[in-house]
Design a protein around this nucleic acid. Sequence first.
DNA 1: TAATCTAACTGGTAGTGACCACACTACCAC
DNA 2: GTGGTAGTGTGGTCACTACCAGTTAGATTA
Lengths: 245, 245
Amino acid sequence: MSRTIDPYNALPKYIQLASILRQKIEDGEWEPRSPIPSERQLEVLYNISRTTIREAIDHLMRQGYIYREHGRGTFVSPQKLQKTLMELTSFSEDLIKRGIQPGQIIRSLTSVLPPVKILQKLELAPGTHVLCIERIRLGDNTPIGLQTSYLALAENQTITSEEMESSGSLYRILQEKFNIIPSEADETLEVTLATPEEADLLQIAEGAPLLLSERVLFAQNRKPIEFVKILYRGDRYRYYARLTR
Amino acid sequence: MSRTIDPYNALPKYIQLASILRQKIEDGEWEPRSPIPSERQLEVLYNISRTTIREAIDHLMRQGYIYREHGRGTFVSPQKLQKTLMELTSFSEDLIKRGIQPGQIIRSLTSVLPPVKILQKLELAPGTHVLCIERIRLGDNTPIGLQTSYLALAENQTITSEEMESSGSLYRILQEKFNIIPSEADETLEVTLATPEEADLLQIAEGAPLLLSERVLFAQNRKPIEFVKILYRGDRYRYYARLTR
DNA sequence: TAATCTAACTGGTAGTGACCACACTACCAC
DNA sequence: GTGGTAGTGTGGTCACTACCAGTTAGATTA
C-alpha cells in the first residue's frame, strides 16, 4: 500500500489517505486507544488540506477504526474484530470470515411466479416472473442452511447454473455481469421448526429448531433486487451483527 | 419545527437544516424517488454555504432518508419503515416501534462476580464485581423475553431498583444519571431450547425453541459498558435489522 | 498548598472559491 | 434515423481561511 499521497492518482486524496491510515492501524503501528496525529499535523505530514483530512477521518470513523474526542484528539478504536464491522455480507463472505470453508449445492434455478407477498417486497407488478435459485449451503462440507433467492432482474438479464457453479457468489455475478452493487438490506430473524423435507435436506431431525432469516436486498438506486430466505441449522449457525446509533 | 435557519440558535446550522429537510420528507412534502432541491439551490434558499448543505445532506443520507446520484441529483428514499432503520435500540424502544406495550418484572438487582467470559467482554480485571439486573420482559402483559444485564459502572456509580421501576428504560438512566450514551453494540443471535426454569418463567413448554441474543454495548468512548443476554420466546419475537455496506 | 487563570493545544462548524466527473438535452452533420 | 458535440446542471473533490468549543498543563495567585 502506498505511503504517500499521489496527486495524479485517479483515486480521491481522502480515500488514499484513509487507506494509509487504515493500514497503520491494521499493522498495529498505532496502538488501540492511543492518539493518531492531530488534523493540523496530518495537514503538514501529507501536504493536504484539513477539509480532505477530515473527510478521510470521517470515513474511518464510520467504519469503526477510530473515534474522536472533542478537545482531546482522535484515537484508535480498541476493537478486536475490525473486519466484521456492521457490514452487508454474502453468505460465502460471511463464512470465510469465520474461517469456515463455504460450499453449495444448487437444487434448482428457474423462472417462477412467486407468491404475492414476495412480489410486493420486490416492488413488482402481480404476475411478474422472477428468477428463483434454491441452494443448500455448506460449511466445511456439511449442510448449514437452505437458501431460496428470488431475483428481480430486467427482461433481458438472466443467470445460468453454469455461472452459479463456477462463480460461487451470486453477489459477484450481479456486480460483474449487471453492475448491480448490493448496498443495503432489511433483514428479519426468527425461530422455526424443521419440516420433514427441510430436516431431510439439512440432515437433522424433524422438528429441530432453525433460524429463519428473510432479507430484502437493495441496489445502489434503492431498488429491491433480491428477496432471500435462509433456513439455518440452529446447532451450527450463529448470527453476528454490529449495531450503531 | 423551524422552517428557516436561525444563526443565533445554539444548534449547528447543518443540524437545523437536516431537521428541516427531514421534516419535509416525513410530512410527504417531497415524494419518494423525486429530487430535492440541488445543493446550489439550497445555498440560495437558506442562505447557507454549500459546505454546510453537504454536511446536512450527508447526515440524512447516512440515516437513509435520501440518496445521491452523481450528475443527476439528490432523491428521497422510497422507504416504508424509516423509523426502524439500522438503529441501536433498547428493548422498550424496540417494542414501542412495533406497537406493542412494553413492560417488565425486575427479578433481581445485585452486585455479583460474573463469569470470566463476561469480565473479558467488559474488559474488566478478574475479580471485579459488576451490577447484575435480571428482568422478565413483557409485551402487552405477557412474557416475551428473559434478560440478564451486567453493567460495568464506576466505583461510585450504582442504580437502585426504585430507579429501574420508575424509569423503565435502563438506557435512559445511564444517559441521564451518568451521561453514558450507548453508541455501538456487537450482537450475536442463535437458537437454543428452553430449560425447565426458563420455560417456567416464560410460560412455555420445556424444550421450546428460543432466540438467544448476546450483546456487548459500547459507550461514546468505545468502552464496553454492558453485557446483556436476552432469551426471546421463539413464537413471540422476531428480530429486525437494517444492514448497509 | 490549593485554587485559579491562561495559553496552547485538540476537534467542530462555517464560508468562499475553484475545478472535475457525470448526466441530460438540444442541436448539428451525416 | 444515427452519431457526434457542446452546453448546462448535478454531485464530488479540494484548498484556504476563520472562528468556536472543549481539554490540558503549566504559570500564577490567594
